[in-house]
Design a protein around this nucleic acid. Structure first.
Lengths: 344, 344
DNA sequence: ACCGCAACTGACAACGTTGTCTAGGCTCTA
DNA sequence: TAGAGCCTAGACAACGTTGTCAGTTGCGGT
């Protein structure tokens, strides 16, 4: 065997425009024109080029194209967990908007870890995504400043950016929680528990604030043992719920801070012999089929994603102006669990 | 104003290695070495370069890097709908494996449209993803042949590839459905309905086959009006269920072909006055909390994704051998709905 | 028959990075 | 002290594409 083995072409053995040009007996640029549907090519030439393309199985290398053109036609999405039923629809909505703008979506899960969020976001920037949609895990996003300055459009969703000024789209967590708790109060409850996500997460803090506001507006005291913030892992939530329900001043109702908390609380309540009212933040599938149906403060995840993505492309199209804060309303959906009377 | 305006740098105004080199007073390649942590740079030089990098906010352009190196360290995932609770965890699992191999994940939703699947898959190939994980919407994947030949590792999940030979990872749809239906038969049912997805979808066809096999093994006839395949849109499923339940020979049990069908059937049955047994393919959150709990044939979406992604990277690492077909077992989870006796 | 003009085509540089190769300076040994 | 050898550093080409520009051809009009 002579050592004339073809040099390892890196992409397997992909034909390039040069190969196509050689085969068709035309210039490189002519192939480029055909591939991109640019005018100024005779039908006859075009046919020859097209034949060569088909014969070789050529496909344009967008990677190289990007280098020349400067836009990658891709955007990045950093979220917490794609497997969470709240983020699936959000991601899909972002994808649809991207698709409408001819862009692809690269997404990454931060697993609620600020370091991983940063690592992901910067990796996306290195890929030169045109824009970034971020659901913050951390509370300091100054690391994105150089990127934003360099032209990476950035929109935050669900939670505001930390320590930088940027577009943000979020649900009215404060108002939603306040309304949900007021709903329980209107049905006669005076001792209401709150179980939420970790307090460093903005939405969790806002919802707690809403809870406190509703209680204060009704002149109701809030006993420390009624409030529990922390991980949304089932075990933690279960423990918290048990504690809140069995304390010296047992609550007659619980407000759950997000969908994961809600479903765990539903499980806990199902094993209880006395009825306890429940309102949860976030709607979830089948909430209507449970007995009683679960009353929720619903936010529209898809709408959040859509709005954020549209804002992003708006910026990419050169929309000027200061960063905006867009707040979407929530909606109380009554299904039974929130209308149970207090079992005093 | 003289017209000496800086030429529009395409990426906003990003510094390049050349800029860093100029600022640090070193050669271009030296910057490259520092950025990539290659040896052969004096600590002093390295410091100067690092300072320049920080001062300019330089970030390596991976797009250009890819062009040189040939590997993009990214893989593509084409699935049906990221918002579907079955695909969220699958996607997340693929992402985790990719992350472990230092790769990013680009995903796209085909919306169960073969044309869109092809468009997406080819767009990903144009981006030169290193590999592709595909959940087929169509049944002809010959369009991927040139790509695969050119070195794009490709693994199909959940459904086999059409008309090409490739690695595939799937659940045992046939066996799972057969077991589920046999379970109903074991509980005394003789008239059992089947509602499934469109028959062109492989899993749907397999599950129907499993249903028929179980019925045949028990010497039970299958009345045409008991079987309904089609879209999984709630309206369609509701209509189908109504028809099956009210026909001349009304069924006493229903086998639902996937999670979307199951939840709609649950809704229909909830409005019924006679009890009808139900077993569904796919597990879903809260299935245990419904009354009765929903008995399901569970498949592990995350495990499917993980297995497929690992197979993919295995191939990328040069694993030889013919395409493999990996079939994962399903698991029957009894919760009550499948154990209801026939209400004859 | 010649000029002007438009339509078509291709040579070439550039995008930002990395691999190769060579130059220069230093240390170490004989 | 000269030669060998190592370490650092930079010049240069290449990756596959697109923008610019200049060359060639053919046509119509005078």
């Amino acid at each position: 065997m002579p050592e004339t083995a073809r040099p390892d072409h890196r992409y397997g053995n992909r034909p390039t425009m040069k190969d196509v040009a050689a085969r068709a007996g035309v210039g490189l640029k002519t192939v480029s024109r055909v591939v991109n549907g640019e005018p100024g090519v005779t039908p006859d030439t075009e046919r020859r080029v097209q034949e060569a393309i088909d014969a070789l199985g050529f496909r344009r290398n967008d990677s190289a194209r990007v280098l020349r053109k400067g836009r990658t036609a891709s955007i990045g999405l950093v979220l917490e967990d794609l497997a969470d039923p709240f983020y699936g629809p959000l991601s899909r909505a972002v994808e649809e908007v991207a698709r409408a703008h001819g862009a692809l979506l690269i997404n990454g899960s931060s697993a609620e870890d600020p370091d991983r969020e940063q690592e992901l976001a910067l990796a996306l920037c290195a890929r030169r995504v045109d824009g970034l949609v971020v659901i913050p895990a951390g509370d300091d996003h100054r690391y994105l400043e150089p990127e934003i300055k360099a032209g990476v459009a950035t929109v935050f969703v669900d939670r505001p950016a930390g320590k930088i000024d940027a577009d943000v789209v979020l649900s009215d967590s404060f108002g939603g929680a306040r309304d949900g708790v007021a709903h329980l109060i209107a049905h006669g409850h005076r001792r209401i528990g709150f179980i939420g996500d970790q307090p460093r997460i903005h939405t969790a803090a806002e919802r707690l604030r809403g809870y406190r506001a509703a209680m204060a507006e009704a002149d109701l005291p809030v006993h420390d043992s009624w409030v529990s913030l922390g991980s949304t892992a089932p075990d933690r939530v279960r423990t918290a719920a048990d504690a809140i329900l069995s304390g010296p001043e047992p609550v007659t109702a619980i407000f759950a801070g997000n969908n994961r908390v809600t479903v765990t609380v539903v499980r806990v309540l199902a094993d209880l012999d006395r009825p306890v009212a429940l309102v949860g933040f976030d709607d979830f599938e089948l909430a209507d089929l449970l007995r009683p149906g679960v009353t929720v403060v619903a936010q529209d995840a898809a709408q959040l994603g859509r709005t954020a993505a549209e804002r992003l492309f708006h910026r990419l199209d050169g929309a000027p102006g200061n960063p905006q804060r867009i707040e979407l309303p929530t909606r109380l959906i009554t299904r039974g669990s929130g209308e149970l009377p207090p079992a005093d």
